[in-house]
Amino acid sequence: MVAPKSQHSSLNFGQRISLGVSDIVGITYRNLIHMVRTPQLLVFSGIQPIMFVLLFRYVFGGAIATPGGNYVDYLLPGIFIQTSLFGGASTAVGLSEDLKGGIIDRFRALPMSRSAVLAGRTIADLARNILVVVLMLLVGFLVGFRFHGSAAQNIVGMVLVVAFGYAFSWVFAAVGLMVKDPETAQIAGFLPIFPLVFASSAFVPVKTMPIWLQDFANVQPVSVTIDAVRDLVTGVPVGSWLWQSGLWTLGILVVFIPLAVYRYRHI
């Protein structure tokens, strides 16, 4: 029998893109509905970073000496990035839940774009991440944080925060597709996050660490990005951090988008 109609092979590039975008919109919408219908999850994903703010601002803060002396302005950029990264980790959990539930099988047997499930997931997670970062900003203001940069600097700083988190959610997408189990994904997701966030300039100046750790803490992407954001929002002329962190963000996307899509195709 001769195959009479192939909806896809006859499509040109532009039509494929527009169908792909429609697929991504559909999946994003589905994931956003999930967030709205599981409000507890949303609430708790906000409480954890708030506790970090309070913990470091009021418990540890007094013992940590920072250049300039105003710890709350030092702390909050670190908190923003930490929040953004932890938010990205939920991508791994969400995807592995979909895998386990069998709905990914349904999606993979549909004539939809092969990257839309991942793109829709990361974009929905980005939306939540923005929400949580805005919440952190509000909490930050309550505990004394203030922007000192120009409007442009502040905006670039906050865009960097969410862009960096978005890049990492693709790392977590790959992780979620590899471990295929929500509980494992939760742990596997946090494993790389902890050393990156705590062995960084997020909470304490890197200078206070042992030399061997400083070597790591100074070059790793989380420190670089926090330093860039911190310089921007405190109004200090931002150094090479900015382009370094931009390159990290881009590099992570360039490596992990194809990797995650490859994993998705070969589940």
């Binding site: 195959a3 192939s6 909806q7 539930g101 069998g102 709905i103 099988d105 549909l110 004539p111």
Partner: peptide, 21 residues
Amino acid sequence: DAEAIRSIIGLAGQYAAVDEL
């Protein structure tokens, strides 16, 4: 022709692959 097949088949799996929420 995997892509073409996906547009002409319907699949229902062993466990109900529908979205709970």
